[in-house]
Amino acid sequence: MTSTSVITLRQVRKNYGALEVLKGINLEAREGEVISLIGSSGSGKSTLLRCINLLETCHDGVIEFCGEPVRWQGSGVTRQPADKAQVIRMRTQLSMVFQQFNLWAHMTILGNVIEAPVTVLGRDRNAAVEEALALLDKVGIADKAEAYPAQLSGGQQQRAAIARALAMKPKALLFDEPTSALDPELEQEVVKVIQQLAAEGRTMVLVTHDMKLAHDVSSHVIFLNQGVVEEEGPPDAVFGSPKTDRLRQFLHATSPAVAGA
């Protein structure tokens, strides 16, 4: 039995001026799947992720969310989502975790976690607080609920950001290089949380430089190179027996340890 598709991208294209950064990408994330996007800087993987929750507008191609296609107006570089309400609805079901955490600086950690559920989803505040505390406990920073973001370490901030993402009870989580801004010793605490989420069967799309993480948590790995899917497949295949030279080179350059495994 195949599970239902949460995110589907077909022939997604995007230009920055004359430069085509996404040249017809296909991607499908089914329920419970973890899709990792790997590739060198400038390969377009972060842009692709941002196109999924419509922070960036792709200029051609189809984006479907749980079978519902994004409605567009205009075409080419002037293409825009046609229905603001649809955009907001989709975003509330796709929680994003950013490289730089992007916790709202003027709110406490607890405030950050309950903000969108209360303001955007209109959830009951007390219930939201209760859930938020449980989530903070889950990511291991229950004692930081009343602290402000700047008082936390990077790893703590990123875990708070993950709690914020989970608080939306999203259909899928989007991770944009969640560990890249962290010192190596802090990286592991975030990696653990992501591994735990993967184990829970959450649907996730993960852009990462961390090949070990991608190898460990992914059900499917996509290697992007210069705006095209150069190679894709199950993690063991992609990392174990890369078919293209480019992927081999990339893996060798980034993390020799994993490439050798």
């Binding site: 929750n53 922070l55 603001k84 907001i88 609805r89 975003r91 509330t92 929680s95 994003m96 950013f98 730089q100 992007n102 709202w104 600086a105 903000e115 969108a116 303001t119 955007v120 989803l121 914020r164 939306m168």
Partner: peptide, 16 residues
């Protein structure tokens, strides 16, 4: 900008 973009990513309207 990141603070604003994050709010957008979480579905806030421009008023919110």
């Amino acid at each position: 900008k990141a603070q604003i973009e994050t709010a957008q990513a979480y579905g806030m309207t421009s008023r919110q």
